[in-house]
Each structure stands twice: as structure tokens, then as C-alpha cells.
């Protein structure tokens, strides 16, 4: 008995020690090279906005001396849950209206959210397109390994909607948690095709090929943004919202493949 317990404890200790070493998360805080900024604006944004918002954040910092924009990119529902639990955020940009509506009904949003972009689905295939997919109908072929998002997450809900509109029944080999998981399965060639957003295909460069399909217009995802009630930098937060919705913001988003809202 004793020896058994000792073994367990020893192994667990090794496990935790290892966990402590590798589990250190890469925090968002980083010292600025020339003097520390006096104010930090914290923006919670959907994972699909990572590259565009990082770019806009740099523009914002250039226009506002002494301000640092710090981002937290994650799934929209995670972000909303974190804000409801009191996470210190100034701005929220979500990948769908559903999660923003939840934030609104939780009374954490300052103003009425503004739609600033939209996104549609595309079929992503590996560059050599091993299964010869050309249309949404091809995804129903049993031998074709198709990966989609789970219907519980926005990209999966959109996928289900286009399936219904197009009267195509896809039997996926996997229903992933996030659109990036779908993309990586296609990139690595594990899957023959996946349904992802147009912006994901664009961001993947040449690692996947995107195929548009007419029914995609039936499931358009709208991205809303809003300043948050708890923000200690209300003016800055509104400035950031204005930047994202401005023509300047529009052009950065358009370059990444986002359509107008």
C-alpha cells in the first residue's frame, strides 16, 4: 500500500514539475522598447481576426502616442464568457451576432454593437486536390474525407445551413471545435476537403486551395464590434471601434478577404 502510494506521488510530482515548466503561457504583456506606454487598451477579438486586428492595433498605436493595444484572440463564446466573469477588456469583436447578442443581454456592452465585416464559407482542399472536389455536391461522396466544424460553433452552424440550402448531406469524418482545426487537417492532407471561411483560405496562402460555391451566400457570418461598459479607457475604446469601422479599417479587412458587413 505504502509503496503504491509513494509511486503515485513520485510520478505525480514529476508530472507537475514538468507541467510547471512547460505550462508557462506566453502572456500578452511585453515591455515596449522605448519607455513604457502609459495606457493599455485591451481588445478581445475572435480568433479569425488575429492578423487583421494585429495590423490595425499597430496603426492605432502609431496614431495614439503612449497607448499600447493588447489583444486576446480566442473563440467568440470563450471571450464572452470571460468578459461576463469580469475579465478586464475594453473592446469586444465577435465572429458572429449570436455571441455579441449574449454579451448585450449580459449588459457588459456600452453602446449598440456595430457590424464591421462579414465572412462566407469556402471549400478548402489540399493544393493537389486528391479527391478531385469541384463542388459542394462532391463533399457528399462517401470516399471523400470531409472535415467540418461542429454545429455548436459558428463555422459549423454555417456549414449545416449551406448543407440544408444546397440539399447536400455531408458525412464528415470529424467535426472540429474551431475553424483553424479544420484548416490544419486539410493543410496536412489528412482530410480531402473542409468547409472553412474564405479568410482562412486566404490566410493559409498556398497551403490550401479555396473553391467557392454558390450556396455560401446563404450563410453569411457578420462580425460585430462594441466598446465595453467596464472599460477604463472609454474614449480610446470608442476610437478603436471607429478605426475598425473606418475606410482604413475596411481596407485592411478587405485585404484579408473579409467582405463589407
Amino acid at each position: 500500500m505504502k509503496r503504491w502510494a509513494a509511486s503515485v506521488v513520485a510520478v505525480l510530482l514529476i508530472g507537475t514539475a514538468a507541467g510547471c515548466g512547460s505550462g508557462r503561457s506566453s502572456g500578452t504583456s511585453s515591455g515596449s522598447p522605448s519607455g513604457s506606454p502609459r495606457q493599455t487598451l485591451t481588445v478581445f477579438a475572435a480568433a479569425s481576426l488575429t492578423s487583421t486586428f494585429t495590423k490595425l492595433g499597430r496603426e492605432f498605436e502609431a496614431a495614439h502616442k503612449g497607448v499600447k493595444v493588447s489583444f486576446s484572440f480566442a473563440g467568440s463564446s470563450d471571450l464572452v464568457a470571460q468578459i461576463e466573469q469580469g475579465a478586464p477588456a475594453d473592446v469586444l469583436a465577435s465572429a458572429d451576432t449570436k455571441n455579441m447578442d449574449e454579451a448585450v443581454s449580459a449588459k457588459v456592452v456600452e453602446n449598440k454593437p456595430v457590424a464591421f465585416a462579414s465572412n462566407t464559407l469556402e471549400i478548402a482542399v489540399p493544393p493537389d486536390n486528391p479527391a478531385g472536389v469541384t463542388s459542394l455536391k462532391d463533399l457528399a461522396t462517401p470516399s471523400t474525407k470531409v472535415v467540418v466544424c461542429a454545429p455548436q460553433v459558428p463555422c459549423g452552424a454555417a456549414a449545416r445551413k449551406v448543407e440544408q440550402i444546397a440539399k447536400v448531406r455531408i458525412t464528415p469524418v470529424s467535426e472540429e471545435q474551431a475553424v483553424t482545426d479544420v484548416l490544419t487537417k486539410v493543410e496536412s492532407g489528412e482530410a480531402d476537403a473542409g468547409l472553412v471561411y474564405l479568410t482562412d483560405v486566404r490566410a493559409a496562402g498556398g497551403k490550401v486551395k479555396g473553391l467557392t460555391f454558390p450556396q455560401s451566400s446563404s450563410a453569411v457570418n457578420t462580425y460585430p464590434i462594441a466598446a465595453l461598459k467596464k472599460s477604463k479607457h472609454a474614449t480610446l475604446a470608442n476610437d478603436f471601434v471607429n478605426l475598425v469601422t473606418s475606410t482604413e479599417g475596411r481596407s485592411v479587412l478587405a485585404a484579408a478577404g473579409f467582405a463589407a458587413p
Partner: peptide
């Protein structure tokens, strides 16, 4: 599991 096997009920 989520990286290698996927996720299907």
C-alpha cells in the same frame, strides 16, 4: 486526441 484523431461522436 484533438490534434491527431479529430472529433466525431
Amino acid at each position: 486526441t484533438i490534434t491527431f484523431a479529430g472529433s466525431l461522436q
